[in-house]
């Protein structure tokens, strides 16, 4: 499977995606825009709190091409963060209020300077360093086989996607053979002590394999724990449920299967004003592979840079950034549906 960009799909153009997100029921007035909905619950404009999580996208290159990927990542994507930009990130981390560094991609491990960056961040004494690992990268090439040891040595917090505890649904979403490799990688992480203690945290991410919202996080976590332990002897700490955002490849899927409008209605109906105050854009700053700043990873993929004067890591000014308004579009309904959704799972 090729990325939208490589296959020259019109949705590779983010303006086209934004156009779709603002037309149809939102243009007809059948559904309120996200900004309007915030106004109705007296939560507009949406402003950030202090930066707690610095989420760095290390590049869009990935060994997998998942059907729902909001990054449109894949082996054919060549965008990758340079060492110079990483150095800028490290200098910002030194003076920022952020206590967590969240490394994402693509597959962040495929960046040739990934290990260097991690070791430098460890030296800085960053409290919590998260690596969002797709698991299969560990088995993709001999040079990655020692990643579990590297993660453990640096006390990284591993967060990994596993859409289901059974093969069929996982492979449908993430590609043929992904489930078996993911299980093997999880067992390798368990051997290092991951998921068995609180000091080596292994969290899993569940996102629905289709046009529906995730169910109760705790209930799903129980099912995952029971099935993975029983079938494969696997332990993990927490399960995060994440709602699929109607952007990029998942938007393409929704449109292709004629599910788009129903999905948007579902998101709007599930709007939960209590989730708004904890949405991740209020405490996270997303840094693109090229150093540009975004309110979240989803805005990054829609090329919606932060409002205000400091738009790049090279001109980082936390005080100014804390005063900005968060850029909104209708995809934001994905983070406020039901129990809410963030890179740390449900927020309510």
């Amino acid at each position: 499977m090729k990325s939208l960009q490589e296959s020259k799909n019109e949705l590779a153009d983010t303006t086209k995606q934004l156009e779709i997100l603002s037309s149809g029921p939102f243009a007809d007035g059948d559904l309120p825009t996200f900004a309007k909905k915030l106004e109705m619950s007296k939560q507009f404009p949406l402003k950030p709190k202090a930066v707690e999580i610095f989420q760095v996208n290390m590049g869009y290159m990935c060994n997998q091409t998942c059907a729902h990927c909001h990054v449109d990542a894949g082996p054919d994507r060549k965008e990758i963060m340079s060492k110079e930009t990483m150095e800028l990130c490290l200098s910002v981390l030194q003076k920022s209020s952020a206590h967590t560094l969240d490394l994402t991609g693509g597959a962040p491990e495929m960046n040739p300077n990934f290990r260097w960056f991690v070791e430098e961040a460890v030296k800085l004494g960053v409290n919590d360093i998260i690596v969002r690992s797709n698991l299969t990268i560990i088995l993709a090439n001999k040079k990655y086989h020692d990643l579990p040891e590297f993660f453990a040595k640096n006390r990284l917090h591993v967060v990994s996607s596993l859409p289901y505890y059974k093969k069929d649904k996982t492979d449908k979403q993430r590609g043929e053979g992904v489930f078996d490799k993911s299980i093997c990688a999880l067992q390798m992480l368990n051997e290092q002590g991951y998921g068995k203690t609180v000091s080596l945290k292994l969290d899993l991410v569940y996102n629905p394999a289709g046009a529906f919202l995730p169910g109760d996080q705790f209930g799903l976590e129980q099912n995952f724990k029971k099935a993975l332990k029983q079938d494969f002897g696997i332990d993990f700490n927490n399960l995060f449920t994440i709602t699929n955002m109607p952007i990029s490849r998942f938007l393409e899927y929704l449109l292709r299967t004629n599910n788009y409008e129903d999905y948007m209605y579902t998101l709007v109906e599930a709007y939960n004003p209590a989730a708004v105050k904890n949405v991740m854009c209020t405490n996270t700053l997303s840094v693109g592979w090229d150093g540009f700043l975004y309110d979240c990873d989803f805005n990054q993929m829609l090329n919606l840079k932060v409002a205000g004067k400091t738009k790049h890591i090279s001109e980082y000014d936390e005080k100014l950034l804390n005063e900005r308004e968060i850029i909104l579009s209708q995809h934001c309904y994905g983070c406020t549906a039901g129990a809410g959704s963030s890179c740390q799972g449900a927020v309510v």
Binding site: Y164, Y206, P208, F212
Partner: peptide, 10 residues
């Protein structure tokens, strides 16, 4: 059917 999918029912 939708509710079952949300709950992770196979």
């Amino acid at each position: 059917t939708g509710d079952g999918l949300k709950r992770g029912i196979s």
